[in-house]
Amino acid sequence: MHGYRLKSIVRQLTISFATASMIIIDQHWLAPHQSRLAESVNPYNPVYQNTLAYRVD
């Protein structure tokens, strides 16, 4: 019985660690893209201003 509990705890910890690792990797990959998007989408960018000017409601 104790071996099964240990196996279950190790399995849960492994799954938790793998999930956290994938989230960290995903956020690390996504951060530069969001940063570049934030740099280009601002009120001082003329391309963005033109896009807003021709936006259809």
Rank of each mutant, 00 (worst) to 15 (best):
L37M: 08
Q12M: 10
T51V: 07
A18P: 01
V10F: 08
I25V: 15
L6V: 11
V41C: 05
N50I: 02
Y44H: 14
E39F: 04
S35K: 12
V56M: 06
Y4P: 00
M1F: 07
A53I: 01
F17A: 13
T14Y: 06
M22K: 05
R55G: 01
I23A: 09
I24W: 05
R36L: 10
D57T: 07
S35N: 13
M22A: 09
A53G: 00
M22Y: 04
E39Q: 13
A20F: 03
Y54R: 13
L6N: 09
H28V: 02
M1Y: 07
L30I: 08
H28R: 01
L37V: 03
L6P: 00
E39T: 11
Q34I: 12
W29Q: 10
A31K: 15
R5V: 04
L13T: 08
I25C: 12
S40T: 04
F17R: 08
S16V: 03
F17H: 04
A18V: 14
S40Y: 05
S40M: 12
K7Q: 12
H2C: 01
S8T: 13
S21R: 06
T51F: 12
S8R: 15
S21V: 08
S40V: 09
A31T: 14
I25N: 09
N50D: 12
I15V: 14
V47R: 04
A53M: 04
T14K: 10
D57Y: 11
I25E: 09
L37W: 03
T51K: 08
D26C: 05
D26P: 00
W29Y: 13
V47G: 01
K7P: 00
I15A: 11
D26F: 11
P32M: 06
Y4N: 10
N42S: 07
L13N: 14
T51N: 05
M1T: 04
N50C: 03
A38F: 01
I24G: 02
S8G: 06
P43A: 07
V56F: 08
A38N: 13
P46I: 03
N50A: 14
T19S: 10
L30N: 12
Y48V: 00
A20G: 02
V41I: 15
A38E: 11
N45G: 01
R36G: 01
L6K: 10
R36T: 02
R36W: 02
I25P: 01
A18H: 07
L52Q: 15
E39Y: 06
V56L: 09
L37H: 03
I9W: 05
Y44R: 11
Y44Q: 13
R55S: 05
P32Y: 06
I24D: 04
R55L: 11
G3E: 13
Y48M: 02
A53H: 08
N42V: 01
